Simulated scan of single mutants.
Amino acid sequence: MTNPGDVRDRLSAVEADNARLRRLLDEAGVADNLRHALRDTMALVRRVMWRSAETSRDVESYVAHLEGRLDSLMRMRGRTDAFGEADLHLLITEELMFHLVREGERAVIEGPSLRLRPKPAQAMAMAMHELVSNAVEHGPLDVPAGAVEVRWQVEDEAGGRMLTLVWTERGGAIDPDSAMQHGFGREVLETLLAYELGADTSLVFAPSGLRCTIRLPFTDRIGRIAQDPPDPAEG
């Protein structure tokens, strides 16, 4: 189990890093809308590069993991730049298809149609990339009989709408080299999602594979259910 103090320290480091980037952009006189987009993307890119270097065993591993993480981030940035939001189901299927894992064959993906805003979409894309990559390299998608299930729901609770997403692996085994046991993958799920989305993430290492549960307030800042109209203030 992760020490709460360690999580707080990592959140503080992320906040300090973002504050430095904000100062640089402010000093450069970049326009507000472009400054926010650059700050969000570049802060995440810098974090990915730094932590990938710290958690990789060798240069080859660093290059491979960094390339995959940046590709995922840039694909989502391109999609949200083009459409203003990202479909959660498509975000997950594209990440799986990048590794030739098809929905309906070795993956079950089920939940209401949700549209995520650009910044939350980037954070969720990073989380899905880490889960998929780990399952391909160390989990059930590394064996013929393995599979994954991704299910989510939005429920009205006392404090407002809550999104709960559950990633479940089947037919695999726990690998001690798994990035979910240690390293940047776990940091993305437990720290990045907490910082960017206010999410609470739990990881359970079952005999057949990982079960990851992500819970977060599904506010207008995060996204909308597809049948809800877009927020005119963000148009």
Rank of each mutant, 00 (worst) to 15 (best):
N3A: 13
P4T: 01
G5H: 02
D6Q: 10
V7E: 08
D9I: 13
D9R: 15
D9E: 15
L11A: 00
A13H: 10
A13G: 13
A16Y: 11
A16H: 15
N18E: 04
A19L: 15
A19D: 15
R20Q: 12
R20V: 10
L21M: 13
L21E: 08
R23S: 13
R23W: 08
L25E: 04
L25I: 12
D26L: 10
E27A: 11
E27H: 11
A28W: 05
A28F: 03
G29N: 07
D32Q: 15
D32L: 14
D32Y: 14
L34Q: 07
L34T: 10
L34N: 02
L34C: 02
L38T: 04
T41R: 15
T41S: 14
T41M: 13
A43M: 03
R46T: 08
R46Q: 12
R46Y: 06
R47M: 10
V48Y: 00
V48D: 03
M49P: 00
R51S: 14
S52Y: 00
A53N: 00
T55E: 07
T55G: 05
R57L: 06
D58K: 01
D58Q: 08
D58E: 03
V59Y: 00
E60P: 01
Y62N: 06
V63I: 06
D71A: 14
D71P: 04
R75Q: 13
R75E: 14
M76A: 12
M76K: 01
R77I: 03
R77E: 15
R77D: 11
G78D: 09
A82K: 03
A82L: 02
A82H: 07
E85G: 06
A86Q: 04
A86C: 10
L88D: 06
H89Q: 11
H89V: 08
L91S: 06
T93E: 05
E94S: 07
L96I: 01
L96H: 02
